[in-house]
């Protein structure tokens, strides 16, 4: 039995009773332990005292804004955080993701999407479950990070250094959103953090090389206004 379901503790920080309710029911039905907090203050206290494995944080808390909470949390914890937000607040999402959140879900959301995020985030090295992503092979796309080799349907693909760096960042956080600013900063340094159009073209080129540039990319998914996500298609 892998670690990521049994006894994993999830802290839900949301001031809406009803949202907490269905989240609690659903998570419990999947075997998770659920902690609840109504305010940011409460949430931080529980995070400190109960060591949850995942924190689900609503951005619309009455007593603090998400960014502040995240920053405070990140000074002493690397716990994975999933944020709940509404559609319009793209910039806020990006800010909070850059401040250290790992992924997000937009309200209203279906429970499956949410559970997938939780599962995904539990696979991170920072959580109790670890995962080694040195190698990716789903039968079509093969990526060897150590030897820097990529092949698609058997044919070798040549990526430039920067292109590979982007792919590596995406693939080491499978199914997780990486913000544009994160990618830009990692690869081009802090001065280029605003050149999102450049990044867009760049990712397009990578997709092209991976032969994944149809209307619906299978591997690299765009999260509009936020960033990109690598979809893990390896069979479990």
């Amino acid at each position: 039995m892998n670690n990521n379901t049994s006894a994993a503790r999830i802290l839900i920080v949301d001031d809406e009773v009803q949202i907490r309710r269905f989240l609690r029911i659903s998570l419990k039905s999947q075997g998770y332990q659920v902690l609840e907090a109504e305010t940011a203050a409460q949430g931080l206290v529980l995070a400190a005292t109960q060591s949850p494995d995942v924190i689900v944080l609503d951005l619309g808390l009455p007593d603090a804004d998400g960014e502040t909470v995240l920053k405070q949390l990140r000074t002493w914890s690397k716990v994975p955080v999933i944020i709940l937000s509404v559609r319009e607040t793209e910039s806020e999402k990006v800010v909070v993701l850059d401040a250290g959140a790992n992924d997000y879900v937009t309200k209203p959301f279906g429970i499956q999407e949410f559970l997938a995020r939780v599962r995904n985030v539990l696979r991170l090295p920072g959580s109790t479950a670890g995962a080694d992503v040195g190698l990716y092979d789903d039968g079509h796309l093969h990526i060897d990070l150590a030897r820097r080799q990529v092949s698609v349907a058997g044919d070798t693909v040549h990526l430039t250094r920067k292109e590979f760096a982007v792919l590596k960042t995406l693939i080491t956080h499978p199914d997780q959103v990486i913000t544009q600013t994160q990618l830009l900063r990692e690869i081009w340094g802090p001065t280029h953090m605003r050149d999102t159009h450049y990044l867009r073209n760049f990712v397009g080129k990578i997709r092209q090389k991976l032969r994944d540039d149809s209307d619906e990319p299978r591997y690299i998914q765009t999260e509009a206004g936020v960033g990109y996500r690598f979809i893990n298609r390896q069979p479990d």
């Binding site: 039905s29 209203p108 959301f109 279906g110 429970i111």
Partner: peptide, 28 residues
């Protein structure tokens, strides 16, 4: 905000009912 929040609860609850039916108790 105020329209979305109840909707989020409704959709969340309804999708839970549908997808996780087998894992839910009658009370749930």
């Amino acid at each position: 905000h105020d329209l979305r929040t109840p909707l989020a609860s409704m959709i969340g609850a309804a999708t839970s009912l549908r997808s996780l039916d087998h894992a839910l108790s009658a009370d749930d």
